[in-house]
């Protein structure tokens, strides 16, 4: 008889030796202990909630040189259309964190490059100028660049957790029929004859966002959406994955921006709310 068989035999004999009631009692005791441990553990280490509270403190009151976020982004993180400040409530935490990192990154340290060859602008409705400077992985904003450099990595994490938990309900606004119809056509079908994909094919149905990479368009102020597309065309924002958005922004005309932003402003949308 081999050693493995011996071990098997001893196990079988042990199980048959103890009575079936004892076996069940043992199982019950083990499961009860596991249940206790599981229910007690979160009390000692609810780090998620701690991050959220720290983020809330920083967002509402600021710290030292860091001003409070609510002065521009609103008390509920709903954004401000007047100064083109985006909604932060309910965005994906990884997305918020990445944007803060890109704001803080020094454009001089990235491998900036100039597009040297002028394209044929007569043929396609492209709007940005020649010799655009692209700085991959950075996002330019006069206010946020200085501000994000003051934040530590932990601050960014805390703020991301706090804002991703906030509830938001959009209030749809009225626009004229023609604007909405054109906006809808662009949002759902894009411009296939120019090779431009639809917005919803990445930003999710109804522009509700998809995952950590594709942010929601619904519920964002119109001015913010238009300002961001302008920044992409000017090379001031170049932090998208695979240059997806840069390629698309190149092909949008001024009318397209207004129409599609109006379409998403007209949609009803809510996040984190019952």
């Amino acid at each position: 008889m081999r050693l493995s068989d011996n071990i098997k035999c001893s196990l079988v004999s042990w199980i048959t030796k103890i009575s079936i009631w004892k076996f069940f009692l043992l199982l019950l005791a083990v499961s009860f202990v596991i249940f206790l441990v599981q229910s007690v553990l979160p009390v000692f280490s609810d780090s998620h909630d701690l991050h959220r509270l720290a983020g809330e403190e920083l967002a509402l009151n600021g710290r030292g040189k860091i001003p409070s976020c609510v002065s521009c982004h609103g008390l509920q993180g709903q954004g401000d259309a007047k100064i083109a400040s985006p909604r932060l409530a309910g965005l994906h935490p990884s997305y918020i964190k990445k944007q803060l990192e890109d704001y803080a990154r020094d454009p001089l340290k990235t491998r900036a490059f100039v597009e040297p060859i002028a394209r044929d602008y007569v043929k396609t409705p492209r709007t940005y100028g020649d010799l655009t400077v692209f700085t991959p992985g950075t996002r330019y904003d006069p206010k946020m660049n200085g501000l994000a450099k003051l934040l530590s990595a932990e601050d960014r994490h805390n703020l991301a957790i706090y804002y991703s938990k906030l509830a938001f309900v959009a209030s749809p606004k009225a626009y004229d029929f023609e604007t909405l119809e054109r906006g809808e056509d662009l949002a759902l079908r894009g411009k296939p004859e120019y090779g431009l994909p639809s917005c919803d094919s990445c930003h999710g149905p109804g522009g509700q966002g998809f995952g950590a990479i594709f942010p929601p368009l619904a519920g964002q102020p119109v001015t913010y959406i238009i300002a961001q597309i302008n920044k992409w065309q000017a090379g001031k924002r170049d932090n998208d994955h695979l240059a997806l958005m840069r390629n698309i922004a190149d092909q949008l005309t001024d009318g397209d921006k207004v129409n599609v932003a109006a379409y998403y402003d007209n949609l009803s949308y809510s996040v984190n709310s019952e």
Partner: peptide
């Protein structure tokens, strides 16, 4: 190191009717 851009002229491809 040359630019390769797929440039599409207006009217180069057939434009199907709108859903509206």
């Amino acid at each position: 190191q040359l630019t390769q851009v797929h440039v599409i002229s207006p009217g180069e491809y057939f434009a199907p009717p709108l859903v509206a």
